[in-house]
Structures are given as structure tokens and as C-alpha cells.
Design a protein around this nucleic acid. Structure first.
Lengths: 232, 232
DNA sequence: TCAGCTGCTTGCTCCGGCGCAAAGACCCCC
DNA sequence: GGGGGTCTTTGCGCCGGAGCAAGCAGCTGA
């Protein structure tokens, strides 16, 4: 049975290269192509055929979807260590979203041919991609649930905490979001409007929970936000 | 390089067993366990540890998520040929949703050990599961977009068309949904309330677009619904 | 350094759709 | 075949949050 492979008992880590030897990882990376994009670049656009798989090394991607009437939503942010456009592994697929860099960003890209070759050599990669896809499915399903049953303020609190967990650093001012995040961005991410987000943040600032400025947010009282997110 | 496998150039079909020889498929099926559930049975519950992977053969599953405040949403329906609880392949995971049968339903279930064994033998299965996960990701992301930018009536039209495409048959009355589908179900699926769905369906019935009764809907003018879904 | 662009704030108005209540329809089972 | 439970309809009132307008603030680049 020449196609047989022994997988370990379980898979627990979620990283793209989980379960693959370090020197093999570097071989895989060398089979891709490293590219640096400046802030605001578009890596791919919704509706275009998917040709490449991307792994973010530094920086961040904003994955957004456009509705026919022009309204935009943010599907998620792709942080270092995460992949996107996995659908490129399958032919004749359109990209479901648009990816733009937020801040200067380094990625590694692989063509479909490379992906198929390395997946053939390391079947574990398909497992890792499956794991990542299931995690995102869980994430968006939870947000879908929140969108239907929770109030806007609660969703904004959750969103800010989520982003804070993934991309922030402590300063004397509080926990600072690592990238430029406008009121409009938060609105697009939580399914509301710029005006409503602005009113909510102003209110929180008055209460001393956050400190913010133009495209900049620092959380000074995360506990207050957690309480709001949990109890409504 | 004993672990090397040659994958074909591309993967186009989405079925769980796509790309696997027929007699090997029957071996895989024999390694699982066939179970018949009567209508309304609960296969698994949100929050429980994931232990088994399910493939629906006949009937249908309703995947739902419960919010802490008691409100429920329908994530999706799982139709024949589709799998669910793929997360069972990974240890220490909680199930993100609850699955209940809608009508008498036959499934095949595999334990984690079986899944790992057959995925080791047929790496193509991981690819197929990845494909399925990416399709669902696309589906829920589209619905997430719709939920934020579209009106309720438009979303109900889309939902009804979606369900119609997957599970309906023609009768002299129109295109009949194959299973019991209440106003409440449609509300849970579209992120609105029983009352609003009832008002919308009454309106459509007056216009002659549908014909409906208790837990029963038949579409008599699909084109009208498509127009509504497309143009808002 | 200042102009201009882009993002942010806030008052006001309006409305889609939620929630309740009460009655009606339908189905199933005893 | 009738009673009870469940699903559905519809009137009414209310309100969260969308949308608009007008002005303000802060960054950036020439």
C-alpha cells in the first residue's frame, strides 16, 4: 500500500507548518516566493480567479467583502503565521474576498502547482489547512450568531477585545492596538455604521474605558469591556 | 521519500469520497457505523467534546447554535452526501453547534481513531474535507455579508431559494420544500423573528409567489423571488 | 507652515422590524 | 371526533440604530 501514511494520534496545534520538520519547513518556504508590500496594497480582489496561497510573515491583511450595492464588510484580519486564499489549491475557483495590507506587510506566496506539489509531499499540510479552515468557520459562525442576537455596543466590545488579543502591545496609556483602525473599520467589522461606532467609543472614553484618537485606540479598562461583552 | 504522494493537477468535485476508488469507498464505509435516527433526534450537542464524524446518507440535519440568553440560530442544513463535525478529527475540541435530524435520517459515523486511520491511508480525504470546509466558509461569509447589508425580506427570499435548490421537488402546486420548515425555522435561519417571517410570507402568498401552510412552503413563482433577492 | 484632505463628533429625524397580545388554523393523538 | 397543543396571523406601539448635515480635529505633504 504505497500511499499509506501514518498520522499521529491527534492534531492539536494550528499553525500551517505544525508537525513538519524544521529543515523541511525551510524547503517548503524556499519553494514559495517572498514578497513585501507597502501599506494599503491589494494582494487580490474578490471575484478574480484564485491562483496563489499566501502566508503572512509580518504585518497584516484585511480581508473584506463587497456587496453589489457598494457596501463593504471586513471578514477578518489575517495576522502573521496565518494563511489566506487556501481556495487557490482548487482550480476554477473565484476568490471570495479582497485582501489589502494594513501597514507594511511581508508574505510568502505559492502558486497552485507548488501547493499541490508540497501537499503531495507533506499531506500534513492539508490537515493543517483543514484545521485553520475549521477555526475560521467557528469564528465567523460565532460572529454570525452575535450579529443576530446581540446589540451593537456588545458586538463592538467583542470586536475590540478580539483585535486586542491578536494585535496589541502595552503602553503607559493602556493596551494599544498595533495598527491603524478607524471608526469605519470597526463599523465594517461589526456590521454597523461609522456614526454608531463613533458614539459608542465617545461614550466609553467618557467612562474611562478607552483612550482613542484618529485611527488609534487604546484600551485602558479591558475588564469593563469584557463585562459588557459577556452580560450584554 | 516514502511519504510522497502524487495528487492530480486539480481538485474540482466536492464530495467527501471524490477521487477515491469505488471499492475503497465501500471499505471506508464499512469501517464506519451506519445509524438510523428518527425525526427530531439530537446527534450531538454544542459544547460537548467532538468524538465522531458524520456523513448524512438520507434525510437531513439541522445545525444550530444557542446563545447564552437562550436565542437560537440555524447555522445550516446538512444534506445527503455532506459531512459534519469534521472537527472530531482533532482532539480536545468542543462541538461548535448542535445537530438534530429533520425527518427520519440515516448517517454513517466514524470515531476519531477511524478517521485518523483512513485519512492516513487516503490523504485525499483531508483534501475533500478541506474543500467542504472552504465551501461552508464561503457560504457563511456570504450570509454574514447579507445579514449586515440587506433587508429582512431580501434575506428571507435568498434563504428560501437556497433551501429550494438543495431540497425540493416539483408538484402541480409549485416547487415544494422537501421537509417541514416552520416560520420559526426560517426566522432562525435568516436572523429575524417569527412575526416578521409570517408577515413576509403572507404578503408573498397574496402576491401569488408562494403557497404555504403549517410547516410547509411551495414556491410558485421562483423568478419573483430571484428578482427580489437580486435587486433588493 | 499652512492648506487641504480625511477622519471624527454630535444633534436631529425617521423607520424597519421587534415584541406583545389575542385570536385563528391546523394537526395529531387519544 | 373532539380536545389540546402547536404553529400562524395580524394589529399596535415602541425603539435602536441608520442616515444626514454641519462643523471640528488631526495628519500629511508641498
Amino acid at each position: 500500500m504505497k500511499n499509506q501514511i501514518n498520522f499521529p494520534e491527534t492534531f492539536t496545534r494550528s499553525d500551517f507548518f505544525s508537525g513538519i520538520d524544521e529543515h523541511e519547513v525551510s524547503a517548503i518556504i524556499r519553494s514559495g516566493h517572498q514578497v513585501v508590500f507597502k501599506s494599503g496594497s491589494t494582494l487580490f480582489r474578490q471575484g478574480m480567479p484564485a491562483r496563489k496561497l499566501y502566508l503572512v510573515e509580518k504585518g497584516r491583511l484585511k480581508l473584506s467583502k463587497l456587496h453589489r450595492d457598494g457596501k463593504e464588510i471586513i471578514v477578518r484580519y489575517i495576522n502573521p503565521g496565518q494563511i489566506t486564499a487556501a481556495v487557490a489549491a482548487f482550480s476554477e475557483k473565484e476568490l471570495p474576498a479582497t485582501a489589502q495590507t494594513v501597514g507594511s506587510t511581508e508574505v510568502i506566496e505559492w502558486t497552485r502547482e507548488s501547493i499541490l506539489r508540497i501537499m503531495g509531499k507533506y499531506p500534513r499540510l492539508a490537515i493543517n489547512m483543514l484545521h485553520a479552515a475549521l477555526e475560521r468557520l467557528d469564528d465567523i459562525q460565532n460572529r454570525y450568531l452575535e450579529l443576530t442576537v446581540e446589540r451593537v455596543e456588545q458586538r463592538v466590545a467583542r470586536a475590540l477585545l478580539r483585535i486586542m488579543k491578536q494585535s496589541s502591545h502595552k503602553t503607559e496609556e493602556g493596551i494599544h492596538i498595533d495598527f491603524r483602525l478607524s471608526r469605519q473599520n470597526l463599523a465594517d467589522y461589526t456590521g454597523t455604521t461609522l456614526f454608531t461606532v463613533s458614539r459608542i467609543l465617545s461614550d466609553w472614553e467618557r467612562k474611562g474605558w478607552i483612550s482613542s484618537g484618529r485611527e488609534r485606540i487604546a484600551v485602558t479598562d479591558p475588564h469593563a469591556l469584557v463585562t459588557l461583552a459577556e452580560t450584554g
